[in-house]
Amino acid sequence: MRGRVLIVAGSDSGGGAGIQADIKAVTALDGFAMTALSALTVQNTLGVRDVMPVPAPFVAAQMHAVLDDLGADVIKTGMLDRAEVIDVIAAICADRPGLPLVLDPVMVAKGGAPLLQASALEALRGRLLPHATLLTPNIPEAESLLGETIVDVAAMERAAVALRALGARAVLLKGGHMAGDALTDVLATQHGVRTFTDQRIATRHTHGTGCTLASAIATGLAQGLALEAAVIRGRRYLRAAIAEAPGYGGGAGPINHAVTVEAQWRV
C-alpha cells in the first residue's frame, strides 16, 4: 500500500458515489484513503432525497487531525456545498502550498439534484480553484465555472485552456455529457492540450464515475506518477469498473470499484 490521499467530500448512503466511491477507488489502486466528511446525503441510484451539512469548523478539524498525524501526499475534494466549507479548505491548502490538490467541482448529482449552493460557486472559482494541481469538471460544471456553452470537442479544448487561466495548474475536462458514441476527455497542462477518446460504454450504471476518476488520478499522483500517466491509468481503471458494473439499483447504478481485486479473493 502506497500513497496517502485525504478526501474531503460528501457521503453517499447508496455507496456508489461520494466519499464511499473515493475510498473504494483509492483502495482498489493500492493507496491509503483518509477522509473529512463535508456533508451527509440520503440517496440511492434513483436520486438524492436529503442533505445534512457538516459544520465547516468540523470539516477543518477532521482535516487537521489527519494531516497532523498521518500526513497526506494528495488532497482530493468532491462535494463542497457551502462557501464556508470551501474557505476552510482553501486556508488549509494555502498553509501547505506543496501539497497537491485534485479538485472535482461536484455541483449536481447524477439524478439532477443540486449539490453546490449558488453562493458557493464564486468561492470555489475564486478561492479554491487557484490551489488546484488538477481540476476535473464535467461539461456542465465547466459551463458553470466559465459562464459559457460547450458544444463540441473544439469548444472543450478552449474551455480547458480557459479554466487553466483561472488558476488551476492542469484541467481534465470530461466529455461524458457530450452526445455521440465516442467519448473524449481533454487534458490541458502547461505543455499544451491532449485529448483522450474511447468508445462510449452503453450502460446506465455510471453513478460515481466522476468521483472515481478524480480519486483514481489522485492516487496515482500520491504514488509518484506523473500527471499524464495518472490520468491514463485512472481512465483505464474507470472504464474497466464501468464494464464490470454489478447491475444494482433501479436508476443510475454503481460501478465495480473492486475490478482490480485478484480472482483468488473472489467468492
Rank of each mutant, 00 (worst) to 15 (best):
residue 3 G to E: 01
residue 5 V to Q: 09
residue 8 V to Y: 10
residue 14 G to R: 05
residue 15 G to T: 04
residue 16 G to I: 14
residue 31 G to E: 04
residue 32 F to E: 06
residue 32 F to R: 04
residue 40 L to K: 09
residue 52 M to R: 15
residue 55 P to F: 09
residue 56 A to E: 08
residue 59 V to N: 06
residue 62 Q to A: 01
residue 62 Q to P: 01
residue 66 V to L: 14
residue 70 L to S: 15
residue 77 T to L: 04
residue 79 M to H: 04
residue 80 L to N: 03
residue 89 I to M: 00
residue 90 A to Q: 04
residue 91 A to G: 14
residue 93 C to A: 12
residue 95 D to V: 06
residue 100 P to H: 02
residue 101 L to T: 07
residue 102 V to R: 00
residue 105 P to Q: 03
residue 107 M to D: 05
residue 108 V to D: 08
residue 108 V to W: 13
residue 109 A to C: 12
residue 110 K to G: 10
residue 130 P to T: 00
residue 132 A to V: 00
residue 138 N to G: 10
residue 138 N to F: 07
residue 139 I to A: 05
residue 141 E to L: 00
residue 143 E to Y: 01
residue 144 S to T: 08
residue 145 L to W: 01
residue 150 I to A: 09
residue 150 I to R: 08
residue 154 A to I: 08
residue 161 V to H: 11
residue 164 R to T: 01
residue 165 A to Q: 11
residue 172 L to H: 00
residue 180 G to Q: 03
residue 185 D to V: 01
residue 187 L to K: 01
residue 189 T to V: 07
residue 191 H to A: 14
residue 196 F to T: 00
residue 220 G to L: 09
residue 224 G to A: 10
residue 225 L to N: 07
residue 228 E to Q: 07
residue 228 E to N: 02
residue 230 A to I: 00
residue 231 V to Q: 04
residue 235 R to Q: 14
residue 236 R to I: 15
residue 239 R to E: 02
residue 241 A to D: 03
residue 243 A to K: 14
residue 246 P to V: 00
residue 249 G to C: 14
residue 254 P to V: 07
residue 255 I to Y: 01
residue 262 E to Y: 14
residue 263 A to H: 12
residue 265 W to K: 05
residue 267 V to D: 15
